[in-house]
Simulated assay, not measured.
Amino acid sequence: MLATFAFARFATGLISGKLVDHFGERLVYSFGIGFVSLTSFAAGLAQNYEQLLIFRAVGGFGSSMFSVAAGSILLRAVDDDHRARAQSLYNGSFLIGMMAGPVVGGALSGFSLRAPLIIYGFLLIAASASGAVLLRNSTLAAKPTAQQERETITVKSALAIKPYRSALIISFCTSWVLFGMSRSILPLFMVEEIKVSPSFMGLGFTITTIINGLLLLKAGKLSDINGRRYSAVIGTSFITLFIVAIAFTTEPWMFIAASVIVGFGGAFISTTPSAIVGDVLEGKGGQVIGLFQMSGDAGAMVAPVILGAIADGYGYRPAFLVSAALMLFAVLVSTKLPETRASHLGQSSR
């Protein structure tokens, strides 16, 4: 179910971007969330696994529409002197939801396993309605005029910009580690080889989330002040250090130390690639943002398959070292990243 939802998001990223470019962010944002709401209700009422799988997969399209539209609004609503801080607030709201969701959903599942999906559906209706109402007078999120549609930045022109290509690479590599490796082979490694309990492992993930949340705004401010390359190098370097620490972990306390490291690195890297994309956008570019989000989705999808195969054939540690090598490439890309805050430094982002 998780894989099909992620694949649906990935497969429809460019379609969602095209819809944003044609209909505007307000309509696509509200319709996308509303669509996920309907599929959530349907999943909650599913009578068998096949129905549940189909409803969740279809919901991935709505999630793609919402996330591309939200990203487009966010990245264009502020200038490049404040873009990373705005992204930090946005990511912080997701962190709160990620922490609160399992708590509420776990409590509701005691009454019925269908209850979390039904409640989720009602919450999404509220989110869809609020977007439609709050953005009703926004020219930024409105349907573009014919002239604006002609001026929309294309994927081809965006790919000609070096910082945009760098953002795609960094996003793919970090998602490989943070959403692919960390949610697939890392828990298995800790339970099977280090012999920790699931609750101990949960403690490590909680520490990572708390540190990430505490540092998000500070990291965003530093990115706006010191530049995207500064934050990208720090973030990718600490995530590489995290993977190396995990690869050589032999005691439970070493996992806790690694959790602190990745919490710090994640705070810096979570805002940087998207801020770069926002810096180089010149007007609407829904497909450009869609492709950027697809790069992250691709890393999260591909990593569990490849790393799982390596872990099965050669062991967990070689799989971690492969991830470290990939992340070292992201560090190299980050060191060569041109500054993109043109309004701040008076430099060209191309």
Rank of each mutant, 00 (worst) to 15 (best):
N226G: 04
L222Y: 12
D224R: 10
G286F: 07
V191C: 04
F205Y: 15
I256Y: 10
K218L: 13
V288Y: 09
T249G: 04
F238K: 01
G265T: 04
S259C: 04
A247N: 05
I194R: 08
S270L: 12
I246H: 01
G265K: 00
L281N: 06
A245V: 13
V277N: 03
L281F: 01
P273N: 00
A245S: 13
A275V: 15
N226F: 03
I234Y: 05
I256K: 06
I185G: 06
V260Y: 08
P198R: 07
V277W: 05
E282Y: 02
P273H: 00
S184M: 01
I185C: 04
F268N: 11
A258L: 03
Y230R: 10
L186I: 13
P187E: 04
F179Y: 10
I210C: 07
I246S: 00
V262N: 07
Y230Q: 05
I211C: 13
G283T: 05
G220F: 14
P187R: 04
G227Y: 02
S223L: 13
I261W: 02
A257S: 11
P273W: 00
P273C: 04
I246L: 02
L241T: 12
T240K: 08
P198M: 03
I246G: 00
G227D: 01
R229S: 08
P198T: 10
V196K: 02
D279W: 01
A232D: 06
I207V: 15
F264D: 06
I261Q: 01
I225R: 15
S270C: 06
I210H: 07
V191T: 11
L222T: 04
V233W: 03
L214A: 15
R229D: 01
W253G: 14
G227S: 02
S259H: 10
P198S: 05
V191R: 11
S270T: 12
F264V: 14
V244A: 02
K221D: 03
G180Y: 00
E251K: 08
P198N: 11
D279C: 08
R229M: 09
A275F: 12
N212T: 15
E251Y: 15
F264I: 15
L186E: 03
S237I: 09
I239L: 13
R229W: 10
F238P: 05
G213H: 04
F200M: 10
G202V: 08
F200V: 09
S231K: 05
I243F: 03
N212P: 11
P252M: 01
I194A: 06
T271W: 08
Y230A: 11
E251S: 09
M181W: 01
V233N: 06
I276A: 03
E251M: 14
V244N: 01
